[in-house]
Each structure stands twice: as structure tokens, then as C-alpha cells.
């Protein structure tokens, strides 16, 4: 005769049963691929290769002495260093300006948001034309002012800043929308109180109310911008193909993995890339969290 399970065990069983679908899905989609990636990164696996050798940490050691990877790392960090402050501050500035509009607000929102909705691969072609040394209107304008012709996309010292400007152009609209959402949650009363307390001037309003009240938004915007900036790929792939020393992390991984089929090495690079995003995001979140006020 079957005896009833003790209630604690029965609860455990049904608990496991309920969490199983989510657990299985998470494992299949996130955990198993990540473990596979980690496993691959310790081998010399190449796509289609018949035997695989265990390399231990060799891939990682090689990565940090590989000049291409080092250049890609430097380029990415430079790119991130331009794009994060640029797109956060510019997004905030534009959001403040657009927020002050009443009737024309939605028009400006659409205009600034357009680059976000467009495909960067397609828009990169437009940028390529705009920045073309001989045909592009940008150089045409510069030349009319008496400046020499500038090869934005092939001059090694300019190529990463140029790509960063294109990245900015694409990301600012999204950050603006996030800041606008943040701005609309600031109670009007606070501005009234500030007005009566004598903090009604533009600088005081911004420093005493707007900026501190946007703390959580700013933190979110910074972290998401950081992640997006680290993942820069399409402009490099379309505009420079890594020429002129313009490789970035993702492009280097793409070359190793899908051009040279060195999956093991690419996996190791990917892990380094993930580690960078993780460390940067945590550091930023930590540092800002102390200053941010949550309502």
C-alpha cells in the first residue's frame, strides 16, 4: 500500500517540478553554451577538426602576447572611453532641451530616435559616403574652409574616434529617450518648492533637483551604454574591415572564429571580452550606487 509522502518532501518535489521548466530552458539557452565556451577555450579546437588537444591556459597566454588582440583591446577601450561619456552627457543634454519643448517635443523625439531604429550596417554606407576623402560632403566642407583633405576612415589615429562618433550618433537617441522617461518621473512639486526656496535658476534647478533625481536613470544609461560600446562590431566590419589597425574586440573574435576557424582561440577571446564587460559594469554600478539616491 503506497504511503503518503511526508509533507516536507512533497513540497520539495512539487517545488522542483514547478521550477524545472525555467531551469531547463535557462540551462539550454545560457548555462550550457557558456560552459561549452569555457571548455572550448582550453583547447585548440578548429571547426571541422578531427582531433582536439587540451591546451590549458595557452590560449589566454597567447591572447595577451598577440599584437592584434592587444591592438583590438586598446581600440575598444578608446572607443568605450569616447562613447560612454559622450553619449550619456549628450543624451542628457538633448533630453533636457527636448523635455522643455511642449508642442514640438514629439517631433524632436522621433528625429533623435531615428538612428536607433535604423540598421547600422545600412547607415554605415551613408557614413562612408559622407566621410569619403574626395567625394564626401564633410571633406568638401572642410576643404572650403581651407583645411586639407582628411581620410577619416583610413588614417590610423582618426579611425577609432571617427567610429566612436558614428557610435555616438546611433546611441544618443536611445539614451535621450531613457533620460526623458527619467525626467518625467521627477515630481513637479519639487521644482515649485525649489522656486519658492530660491533654487529656481537653471543651474540650481539642475544641480539640486534634476541631476540627483536622475541618478538611477544615469546609472542604468551608463551601464547599458558601456555594454553596447564594448560590443562595437558592425561599423568596423562594414567601414574598415579592420584595416589601418582598426580591429576591435568583437571583430578580432569574429576573424579568429569565422575566418580562420580557430574556435578554441576565439572562445578564449570571447571569455576575455565577457570578463571585461562584467568587470566594467560591476565597477560602474558599485561606484555610482553609493552616490545614487533611490526614491
Amino acid at each position: 500500500m503506497p504511503t503518503a509522502l511526508p509533507s516536507a518532501r512533497r513540497e520539495l518535489f512539487s517545488g522542483l517540478l514547478f521550477s524545472a521548466p525555467a531551469f531547463i530552458l535557462l540551462s539550454l539557452i545560457h548555462i550550457v553554451p557558456l560552459l561549452t565556451l569555457i571548455a572550448l577555450s582550453f583547447t585548440d579546437y578548429e571547426l571541422g577538426a578531427l582531433d582536439v588537444r587540451w591546451l590549458g591556459l595557452d590560449n589566454f597566454a597567447r591572447a595577451f602576447s598577440d599584437p592584434v588582440f592587444q591592438r583590438a583591446l586598446r581600440n575598444t577601450l578608446l572607443y568605450v572611453a569616447i562613447v560612454i561619456p559622450g553619449s550619456v552627457l549628450l543624451g542628457l543634454l538633448i533630453a533636457l532641451l527636448v523635455h522643455a519643448r511642449k508642442r514640438t517635443r514629439s517631433i524632436y523625439e522621433v528625429i533623435y530616435f531615428l538612428p536607433v531604429t535604423s540598421t547600422l550596417v545600412a547607415m554605415a554606407t551613408v557614413w562612408q559616403f559622407l566621410l569619403h576623402p574626395r567625394l564626401g560632403p564633410v571633406n568638401g566642407f572642410l576643404k572650403s574652409l581651407g583645411f586639407p583633405e582628411i581620410a577619416f576612415l583610413s588614417e590610423p589615429s582618426l579611425v577609432i574616434p571617427t567610429l566612436a562618433v558614428i557610435g555616438l550618433w546611433q546611441m544618443v537617441g536611445f539614451n535621450m529617450i531613457l533620460f526623458l522617461a527619467g525626467l518625467s518621473t521627477i515630481p513637479r512639486d519639487l521644482y515649485d518648492a525649489a522656486e519658492v526656496d530660491g533654487a529656481g535658476g537653471a543651474v540650481d534647478r539642475f544641480l539640486r533637483i534634476t541631476w540627483p533625481m536622475l541618478g538611477p536613470t544615469t546609472m542604468f544609461v551608463t551601464v547599458t551604454t558601456c555594454i553596447t560600446a564594448f560590443k562595437v562590431f558592425d561599423t568596423v566590419a562594414v567601414l574598415t574591415h579592420g584595416r589601418g589597425g582598426s580591429e576591435v574586440l568583437l571583430y578580432a573574435i569574429y576573424l579568429e572564429g569565422f575566418h580562420y576557424f580557430k574556435m578554441g582561440y576565439a572562445a578564449a577571446l570571447t571569455l576575455v571580452f565577457l570578463a571585461f564587460i562584467l568587470v566594467f559594469s560591476i565597477l560602474q554600478a558599485r561606484r555610482m550606487d553609493r552616490k545614487v539616491h533611490y526614491a
Binding site: G198, A199, G200, R208, I209, P212, H293
Partner: peptide, 29 residues
């Protein structure tokens, strides 16, 4: 302007600056 009128206002939901301490709030004017 409001600040030039020498009046103080107490709002329905107090309109305290949430990121400042009570002391900083009181000190603001």
C-alpha cells in the same frame, strides 16, 4: 519671482527633496 516675494510654501505632499537629508532640506532656502 517666487523667491523675491518673501513667502514660504508648504505643499500637499511636502515636496521635500528626496535625495537630501532633513537638515539639508531645511537649510536649502
Amino acid at each position: 519671482l517666487p523667491r523675491e516675494r518673501n513667502v514660504a510654501m508648504v505643499f500637499q505632499n511636502y515636496a521635500l527633496y528626496p535625495h537630501m537629508t532633513a537638515g539639508e532640506n531645511i537649510a536649502t532656502p
